[in-house]
Design a protein around this nucleic acid. Structure first.
Lengths: 226, 226
DNA sequence: TCAAAAGTGTTGTGATTACACCCATGG
DNA sequence: CCATGGGTGTAATCACAACACTTTTGA
């Protein structure tokens, strides 16, 4: 049995939903493609998977070369396989999502794209391919994951205030959460540590700064939303 | 940009973790492969995805031609992409799991396999490729899914007793669940309907038979385990 | 002293757990 | 009448939701 030479295989792509959080807004990175079939359309960043690389490596390659990012939180989402999803031919795409802190990277348009921009998730333009669907799956996954796993820390600075974390959760989930109940829940979970440092220099009471408790075993957290 | 002819693509496979439930045991269907590289080894059923077919269709093809099954519950799990996972060459495999009622099908070994057998999940043999890992992901997914979605009904007969459903949950989750609390929870969720019929002929009190309430909107169920 | 955001506890309610006895049937 | 599994209710506990006032700072 030698299917590797005798059969034709679909092309394999890795596509990325890159989430970033700034100005109290959750955003997604989109490319304005230079090439057909979605020229001048916004699309998710993606690339064909090479014979010798893993999906993770393909994603890293996209992040590094096209976007100037590295070492980010990355998770596989779902594989999209509609034979018609790419007008150029059969492409099976494995969707991933990444979480980054936009402050840490300067986004640069690579050779493939005219333009790379952050779009607030509530103001997305029309997307090419089946990328709207990929985005939907990614947002859903992020929303459910943040309830039982501390993914939020990937989006914030090393140190952050309780209010910043609180606003991040409200923003991602799209709901209001009682401030005191949120604080208690988070502190009880022991996912964060008080650094003892305070954020000074504002014209109101200085907020305590926290950091993520990296030593924590998982399964210790379940946020139920109000 | 014409990557479809100019680049070589990895082979794409669909692999299946087929769960069945009988004799109070959750089992998985394995093939004893006739072909290298895992001749006389147990493996999960799988096939290469053809250019014109979807992953779902590839799975159906496996289920129909190799196993004589059709129209079963099927869900995509995860895509396995380690370049070394198949000694024959680069194969990216999209793992799925299926739920079937073994009573409804007669398992037949297709031309690819010497032998097709059900193995209780607690007594699995060594598996070829990375199929142990695929199985692990599948079991984990089934366990978490059954807590908020009525997948259990795919494994039982059309009509079933509360005790049968209870035992199924205990078996899949591998824990004991209080009988009265389970009953209350399930009935409150309205996922099942009392048919009014009873299972007669046993030498004890006849049990009421229930069926799945197919009209129910989702999101109405959250089983918390004791 | 004022504005603006940070910090803090309590109480009512609803859900979950733990638990034991009676019922219906066939042999 | 007995063995077997089927069916039922309640009380204690816990977790969550709702809620308002005080503190600290800079201007």
């Amino acid at each position: 049995m030698k299917p590797f030479s005798s059969y034709q295989n679909p092309a394999l792509a890795a596509d990325l939903v890159v989430f970033g959080y700034y100005d109290n807004t959750l955003s997604v990175l989109l490319l304005n493609s230079k090439a057909e079939p979605f020229k001048d359309c916004w699309t998710l960043p993606g690339a064909f998977v090479q014979m010798e690389e893993t999906l993770q490596q393909a994603c890293s390659r996209i992040l590094t070369t096209k976007l100037g990012m590295d070492k980010v939180y990355l998770e596989q989402l779902y594989t999209f396989d509609d034979p018609q999803r790419d007008p150029r031919g059969r492409v099976v795409a494995v969707a991933h999502y990444a979480l980054i802190n936009p402050k840490k990277f300067e986004v640069v348009a690579g050779q493939m794209a005219n333009d790379v921009r952050w779009f607030p998730v509530k103001k997305l333009p029309a997307l090419g391919f089946d990328h709207k669907e990929m985005f939907g799956v990614a947002l859903q996954r992020l929303r459910s994951k943040i309830l039982y796993f501390p993914v939020g820390f990937e989006l914030l600075d090393e140190q952050f205030t309780m209010t910043e974390l609180h606003e991040l959760y409200e923003c991602i989930l799209g709901i209001g959460i009682d401030r005191r109940n949120f604080r208690r829940k988070i502190l009880d979970s022991e996912y964060i540590i008080n650094t003892g440092v305070k954020r000074e220099g504002l014209q109101n009471r200085p907020a305590e700064l926290y950091k993520f408790n990296k030593k924590l075993k998982r399964n210790n957290f379940q946020l139920n939303i109000s």
